[in-house]
């Protein structure tokens, strides 16, 4: 499984989305379940899936799925696949 696929599967589960609702261009505003609880669950899931701990400050700053990718890329996770 590629990192992109791993991230997709994780975020579908964390944000309780259906498969066809997910798109990498989505922002926090467009995802109803990306509320404060979604932010917590996202941070927990990213650490589980990719091994990188997000501080609360880092977690609330992320406002889009691209933002999540940018954060993970800065941690050394490659999405070139």
């Amino acid at each position: 499984m590629t990192n992109r696929e791993k991230l997709r599967d994780l975020l579908i589960d964390v944000f309780l989305l259906e498969d066809d609702e997910f798109d990498f261009s989505l922002t926090q505003e467009q995802i109803e379940t990306w509320d404060s609880l979604g932010t917590v669950s996202m941070a927990v899931g990213l650490e589980e899936a990719f091994g990188h701990h997000m501080t609360p400050e880092q977690a609330v700053e992320v406002e889009s799925i691209q933002g999540i990718i940018d954060y993970l890329t800065s941690c050394g996770v490659s999405f070139a696949d």
């Binding site: 994780l10 589960d13 379940t33 609880l37 917590v40 669950s41 927990v44 589980e48």
Partner: peptide
């Protein structure tokens, strides 16, 4: 899965 308590579990709970 949608319950607020579940969403703050120490491990992600998936379908």
């Amino acid at each position: 899965l949608r319950d607020p308590c579940t969403r703050t579990n120490s491990v992600v709970v998936r379908p």
